[in-house]
């Protein structure tokens, strides 16, 4: 009791000193106090692993060989990656997937947004139905599309067979070298077109009616209104959607693994799948780190150029 009574004034004095010290700090110092925990966390979980990955990329380190000496091997991992024909094949597969998914998603997404933007009965219901695929887990989508693509019992093959007159079991979307790259494009387009549609819809709804009314007064045709008002004003939104989808599809993994596992052969082995195999199946940690650095630099460089272009379009 007596101890408590004695320590209370000391505590009060200490807290008063602290308050005085805080009051004496500049705004900049207080700002640093507030953001420093976040910066520390970012350094610990983002920046440090990045620097560590760059370091590992110059070594022959293997995480599954703790007893083996780690040697510094300079640029050897980079040389091997850039001169490996198989890696360029996976890059091609990734480029095919990336380009076609973006083209199809932009075209279909924008068309859907344009249609949904019109006022009609059941508009909300259709919007909800259209966005359903993007709410599903990619692993689930990949799994059930393997059933849809089944030559003997798959709905996709049945519909194609019904429309074209071909025998449904005469073709295999995920087992045929020519069709498999398209099989993954179709599924990704089915799943992510609604995302592009929603962004385009936001763009379309941000255009004030007064602009169209002014165009009507100037007797501009619908076609002219579309190309001179709608497209330029939606373009920044569209470019944003392309950026998001581009980054996402560059690192596409789960959906394709579930669908094809990278096959047949290596036809649909995208860079992220290939990287995972190097890192966590072959356990070539140093090599995989170099691979990851190359991919990071590529995507960071492309994204930076793209963001500059996007800013230019927005400022017009």
């Amino acid at each position: 009791m007596s101890d408590g009574a004695n320590t209370q004034p000391i505590k009060n004095k200490q807290s008063a000193n602290l308050m005085n010290k805080v009051r004496g700090l500049s705004d900049r110092a207080i700002a640093w106090i507030f953001i420093s925990p976040t910066i520390l966390i970012l350094l610990a979980i983002n920046i440090f692993p990045l620097i560590w990955t760059v370091y590992l990329s110059f070594t022959n380190y293997r995480v599954n060989r703790p007893k083996k000496d780690v040697e510094f091997i300079g640029l050897r991992n980079y040389e091997r990656i850039l001169s490996d024909a198989d890696i360029w094949i996976t890059m091609q597969a990734t480029a095919h997937f990336l380009i076609w998914t973006i083209i199809l998603q932009v075209m279909i997404g924008f068309t859907l947004a344009y249609l949904i933007n019109k006022k009609f009965k059941g508009n909300d219901l259709w919007t909800t139905i259209i966005v359903l695929p993007m709410m599903l887990s990619p692993a689930v989508v990949g799994n059930f599309w393997t059933f849809l693509y089944q030559p003997q019992i798959g709905l996709f093959n049945y519909v194609v067979g019904f429309v074209s007159g071909a025998d449904p079991s005469s073709f295999s979307m995920i087992g045929d070298v020519a069709l498999a790259p398209w099989a993954i494009v179709i599924v990704d387009t089915w799943m992510w077109t609604p995302f592009v549609m929603l962004i385009c819809l936001a763009g379309l709804r941000s255009i004030p009616d007064s602009i169209y009314e002014a165009a009507e007064c100037d007797r501009a045709s619908k076609w002219r209104q579309f190309w001179t008002i709608t497209v330029p004003m939606v373009l920044p939104f569209l470019m944003l959607a392309v950026l998001f989808r581009g980054i996402e599809n560059f690192k596409m993994f789960d959906l394709v693994v579930q669908l094809t596992g990278g096959g047949p052969g290596s036809t649909t082995e995208l860079t992220s799948i290939n990287l995972k195999r190097e890192a966590f199946e072959k356990w070539r940690t140093g090599y995989a780190s170099a691979y990851a650095v190359i991919l990071f630099v590529s995507i960071f460089g492309i994204a930076s150029i793209y963001v500059k272009a996007l800013n230019k379009v927005k400022s017009r």
Binding site: D86, V177, G263, P264, G265, E281, K282, W283, R284
Partner: peptide, 17 residues
Amino acid sequence: ASLLLPMQSRIHNYVVA
């Protein structure tokens, strides 16, 4: 594992693809 993966890839490339 490093021996298995190229075998998977080479054989699948030839047999299936």
